[in-house]
Design a protein around this nucleic acid. Structure first.
Length: 580
RNA sequence: UGGGGCGUCGUCAAGUGGUAAGACACCAGCCUUUGGAGCUGGCAUUCCCAGGUUCGAAUCCUGGCGCCCCAGCCA
């Protein structure tokens, strides 16, 4: 420990190898990057940025964490610094190894690498204990015998000062003895705490002699039963940052009130002093990011689990088909500020589509099929048409798609009595089957009982092979299709927003705003044969529908299950909606 | 007269005394073998309000108003 009046040294063992990321050229810096830049210029932190992402392993990471992760890792990388992954595991009542593992998987999936800089607050339990002893010796901490209820009474209220604990003036010797015996397990859980001696009249409640150690007989997922006392967050966090040589400790606005305490501990202990900087957490419209509320969705079986494709968890987004790139781009676009905000969900979808548009190969899938019989096409004949895999990326090449006398088209692509501006198939109208031929609808066969359309009879123009005609005549509509004899059967899960409200937590009954159509399962879908061998992890654009991925859980033993990641923008649907 | 923050387009967000970037959304048009993508244009005479300082204010000053966070032996 540094002697008084000496400039505290920053730990030397923290400058590991660089992540080597290039500096992003930003036309304007957010307030945090501005601070970092200035600190670098003034040499405040010896020219090396060290940040940390410090989750408590008590649940799953969600889109809100993604912002923090991108910031913590991003800012360090931009400045040739490093980022630590540190589990803030000081409360064994809530923490589990499986959560820590899931968190690591999610951070890695997002595209970040902490290298060998994996840390745990629990790694520092010994050091932390020594720091606490130091505080006791310095007369800055005392053992308090007040019960939790009494502590609350003594704390005062938001507008009234608290009053000193009757145990506040114990001698150093007595405090040392009692604290040692706390550690040795001589007292019951909750019987005593170690408290910082600060100011019971402070306007900031965090400074009214906060607890720094509590007695809790509970097995810790890493330290087992070694300890029966555990340090509190405020005491642990600043010191963990200090021990690791963190330069900039970024956190939620909620911790602004805690900064004076963060600074107090480091000042009193005269140790290396990182800077805590707070920023506004991310809120996204039509979704929730409260761990407690997400847990409710899982426990009430409103969703199938933490990785349900409708969940805003990273595991849910992953299963839904979001790419890590799209989430990183999103986090970059939303910016960083101290203003409470509700970012439009449409921006997330925009980032997703932008990424998928250039990467997803196009395929044809008919979700709600209706049979089309091309009467003048030779029975038994099969042709193969060349189809471009991705017009946005020539390198993706082409594939062959079989065509025959009977094909399926989308039920919604035919109307017997179409409104104006309906460019699709209707009696007497001509459309193009993508990559194949022009067809004209001649007649409709319906189920006599239900009136449901059973099949459409059409004729094709052999001259239009490949989708164009020598006479250059144009058709307004181009439909996707799939050959009836060659199609594979598939199940499609149409996911939509989980909530119907922009801000589901505005009142406390967010469960009432669940979108009843957040999941529509469709069976009997017909997909082109190239999809027969699709496996989890693969994603596509279903032409004219949207982006879909193979579900990682339900697509087992040859069964094809696709999740709709996000639909294509649909100006026809928008037009229809406006007319209503 | 508790403390701490925040108020710039529908939503994010630049702007740091020199005359309101950008993105999403939205609207209009072009183009198109995806009603996708792409392209073009439109979209804050005004920055929570009111005074003041200044040649000049979103930026400085004064006074209001509004919103968020804090009373765990949680993080």
């Amino acid at each position: 420990m540094t002697a008084p009046n000496e400039k505290p040294d920053r730990p030397k063992d923290v400058t590991n190898n660089s992540d080597g990321s290039a500096n992003n050229e930003r036309e304007s810096l957010d307030f945090i990057r501005e601070i970092v830049k200035k600190d670098l210029e003034t040499g405040k932190f010896d020219g090396r940025v060290v940040t940390r992402f410090p989750p408590e392993p008590n649940g799953y990471l969600h889109i809100g964490h993604a912002k923090a992760i991108c910031l913590d890792f991003g800012i360090a990388a931009e400045n040739d610094g490093v980022t630590h992954l540190r589990f803030d595991d000081t409360n064994p009542a809530k923490e589990e190894t499986r959560f820590a593992e899931a968190i690591m998987e999610d951070v890695r999936w997002l595209g970040f690498d902490w290298g060998d800089r994996l840390h745990h607050a629990s790694d520092y339990f010994d050091k932390l204990y020594d720091y606490a002893v130091q505080l006791v010796k310095d007369g800055k901490a005392y053992v308090c015998d007040l019960s939790p209820e009494e502590v609350r009474e003594y704390r005062g209220t938001l507008t009234e000062p608290g009053k000193d604990s009757p145990w506040r003036d114990r001698t150093v010797e007595e405090n040392l003895d009692l604290f040692t015996r706390m550690r040795n397990g001589e007292f019951d859980d909750g019987a005593r705490t170690l408290r910082a001696k600060i100011d019971m009249a402070s306007g900031n409640l965090n400074m009214r002699d906060p607890a720094i150690y509590r007695i809790k007989r509970m097995s810790h997922h890493r330290t087992g039963d070694t300890w029966c006392i555990y340090p509190m967050y405020d005491f642990t966090h600043c010191l963990s940052d200090s021990i690791e040589g963190i330069t900039h400790s970024l956190c939620d606005l909620d911790f602004e009130d805690h900064r004076p305490l963060y600074d107090w501990f480091l000042n009193e202990l005269k140790t290396y002093h990182p800077q805590q900087i707070e920023f506004a957490r991310l809120n996204v419209s039509y979704t929730i990011t409260s761990k407690r509320k997400l847990r409710q969705l899982v426990e009430n079986n409103i969703v199938t689990g933490w990785d349900d494709p409708r969940m805003p968890t990273l595991s849910g987004l992953r299963r839904r088909g979001y790419t890590p790139e799209s989430i990183r781009i999103f986090c970059d676009k939303i910016g960083v500020a101290k203003r409470e905000s509700l970012v439009d969900f449409a921006l997330l979808e925009h980032c997703l589509r932008e990424d998928l548009n250039v990467r997803a190969q196009r395929v044809m899938a008919v979700i709600d099929p209706v049979r089309v019989i091309i009467d003048n096409y030779p029975e038994g004949q099969v042709e193969e048409f060349e189809a471009v895999n991705n017009p946005e990326n020539e390198a993706d090449g082409v594939r062959m798609v079989p065509f025959s006398r009977e094909v399926f088209i989308e039920r919604a692509d035919f109307m017997e009595d179409p409104p104006k501006k309906f460019f699709r198939l209707a009696p007497g109208s001509e459309v193009r089957l993508k990559h194949a031929y022009y067809i004209t609808c001649d007649s409709v066969v319906k189920d006599e009982a239900t009136g449901e359309i059973k099949e459409l009879h059409c004729t094709y123009d052999p001259e239009s092979r490949g989708g164009g005609t020598p006479d250059g005549r144009r058709v307004k509509g181009t439909l996707h299709w799939v050959s009836a004899t060659h199609a594979s059967d598939a199940e499609v899960h149409l996911y939509d927003k989980l909530f119907t409200r922009e801000n589901p937590v505005e009142d406390d009954d967010f469960i009432n705003h669940i979108n009843p159509e957040s999941l529509v399962c469709v069976t009997g879908c017909k997909v082109e044969p190239s999809l027969a061998k699709a496996t989890p992890g693969m994603f596509f654009q279903f032409l004219r529908h949207g982006y879909f991925c193979v579900d990682s859980v339900e697509a087992v033993s040859g069964k094809l299950v696709f999740n709709r990641t996000v639909g294509l923008r649909d100006s026809w649907a928008k037009m229809q909606k406006q007319q209503k």
